[in-house]
């Protein structure tokens, strides 16, 4: 598994995943428009071969200028192949896309729509990613279902690079490699200790 920025070569795979997973579909040209207008905004997850797209987020900067002129992003589409779900891919893809929208395009917030009945997506947006429900869009979808219009403020995103500069101590890592078994605290890792390491769920 691999998560990275989407490239042109990923488009047909994104389109395929979209057609497998969601009823709202787009032709190749539309993806191409996204890619050549906001090349930084979309991300993909691939299988181990690195070529098969198993999840994607297609995001953009909203084109209609807001009345108040505040630039904001929009998530056009997000989905993960069922066999790869529930391992955190969607959440990670979204986080990367939001950061790009904020950094590259100055988006102050991001908006999206989700079907009222889509429990998984609702949990992801509201609970994991902390989006707010702005309103209910009546009969938003082709089949008549209502949508939640959701939003998230991006100005509160952490400056990851600055945090990294401030807190990250690289020496431990280099030492770990050079002396093989040092832990963060500089202690030697014994066999039993490394075995006893437990997973955090």
């Amino acid at each position: 598994m691999d998560i990275r920025q989407a490239t042109i070569a990923d488009i047909t795979g994104m389109q395929n995943a979209n057609l497998m997973n969601l009823p709202e579909n787009y032709v190749f040209r539309y993806y191409l428009y996204h890619a050549t207008t906001w090349p930084q905004a979309s991300f993909v997850a691939t299988d181990a071969s690195g070529t098969k797209i198993v999840g994607y987020v297609l995001a953009k900067l909203e084109e209609e200028e807001q009345k108040d002129g505040v630039p904001h992003g929009h998530v056009t589409s997000l989905s993960v192949m069922r066999t790869y779900r529930r391992m955190g891919l969607a959440g990670k893809l979204m986080e990367l896309a939001l950061r790009s929208l904020y950094e590259c395009y100055g988006a102050k917030f991001v908006s999206l729509h989700v079907r009222k009945s889509n429990r998984a997506a609702l949990h992801l947006y509201r609970d994991t990613l902390k989006f707010d429900v702005k309103e209910i869009s009546k009969a938003y979808y082709g089949d008549g279902e209502d949508a939640y219009a959701m939003q998230k403020d991006l100005e509160t995103l952490d400056d990851l690079d600055a945090l990294f500069e401030a807190t990250s101590d690289d020496d431990f890592l280099i030492e770990a490699v050079q002396n093989l078994n040092l832990t963060e605290s500089g202690k030697l890792v014994t066999e039993t200790e490394s075995e006893a390491k437990t997973e955090t769920a």
Binding site: M1, D2, I3, R4, A45, G50, K92, L96, R99, L160, D161, F164, S168, D170, L173, I174
Partner: peptide
């Protein structure tokens, strides 16, 4: 270079490259 890549991993710890 190592530090630069660590910074990238810090942003996205699931990118193989």
């Amino acid at each position: 270079a190592a530090r630069a890549y660590r910074k990238l991993i810090n942003r996205n710890p699931d990118c193989k490259a």
